[in-house]
């Protein structure tokens, strides 16, 4: 087993295990910390695929900004002390069963398709580097890029208007 495969399986186990801990831990703060671990594992997968720009952006934007915002809101509401309410037992069971059914159906539907054996370019290839991505972003995708700034502005105005005390 090569080092790439070893890293792939390690990161996969880390991502799936910490994703399960996100939904099964009782304390919301622990859930957030496990979700940060999941995001780091996904960033590791990006590095393994040589998508270095996305790996860094994933760490900065998700693990750095968004999860800190979540943690901030949880601590602001002082939810970490109180035990979080749980759904009824049969309702939780039904949720797990239906999620498992989705997993089963998607796996069974995709298992025998032709594309599944196709190889990926691991560790090499320069499409994920910032030089290539920046060139394409500011040449072909400059209009969506500018529109996303309008989206951010409206999100900022919306957050202020919603959060304001009337």
């Amino acid at each position: 087993m090569s080092i790439t495969q070893l890293l792939f399986w390690f990161l996969t186990a880390l991502a799936l295990g910490s994703a399960l801990m996100v939904i099964f831990s009782k304390n919301p703060v622990h859930s957030i910390l496990w979700l940060i671990t999941t995001f780091f594992a996904i960033s590791g997968h990006y590095i393994l695929l040589n998508a270095q720009f996305l790996a860094i952006v994933n760490i900065i934007v998700y693990a750095g900004a968004i999860m800190v915002l979540f943690l901030f809101v949880v601590m602001l509401m002082n939810l970490n002390a109180s035990a979080t309410p749980l759904k009824k037992k049969w309702l939780r069971f039904a949720g797990v069963i239906s999620g498992g059914c989705l997993l089963l159906v998607l796996t069974a539907a995709l298992k025998d398709t032709d594309i599944m054996r196709q190889e990926l370019m691991m560790k090499t290839g320069d499409i994920g580097l910032i030089h290539n991505l920046g060139t394409v972003l500011f040449k072909e995708y400059v209009l969506p890029f500018e529109i996303s700034s309008v989206l951010f502005l409206s999100a900022m105005v919306g957050a202020v208007v919603i959060g304001k005390k009337e």
Binding site: L16, A19, I23, L79, P85, K87, S98
Partner: peptide
Amino acid sequence: LFSIGIIGVLTRRNLII
């Protein structure tokens, strides 16, 4: 990972989670 997310949405009552 997507199914774990679905299970979390269906089983938890905390809005943040």
